[in-house]
């Protein structure tokens, strides 16, 4: 899938949780991704972390990092 679109969607989720402290927002974003994103989408966005050139908001980046485990 389009990496730009995946990153956009993830950041969109992040904006909803932006009022939360970063660690809490990251947990909520990760929970959302686990519950609603099909594994190939999650895997792709995890892969994108390695090539991250600032496309993820900080809480989103933390959330995606937490999906690795």
């Amino acid at each position: 899938m389009s990496p730009e679109r995946l990153a956009y969607m993830a950041n969109q989720i992040g904006r909803f949780f932006a009022h939360r402290p970063e660690h809490a927002a990251a947990a909520d974003i990760a929970d959302h991704l686990r519950k609603f994103w099909e594994p190939r989408m999650r895997n792709q966005i995890i892969t994108m972390l390695g090539e991250d050139s600032g496309q993820f908001d900080p809480a989103v980046r933390k959330a995606v990092e937490s999906l690795r485990t």
């Binding site: 899938m1 679109r5 609603f36 190939r40 989408m41």
Partner: peptide, 18 residues
């Protein structure tokens, strides 16, 4: 046990061949 693809995800996945 994992969620599946939504309609727009299916279309996106079709375009990448999966």
């Amino acid at each position: 046990a994992e969620p599946g693809l939504r309609i727009p995800n299916m279309i996106d996945a079709a375009l990448d061949g999966s």
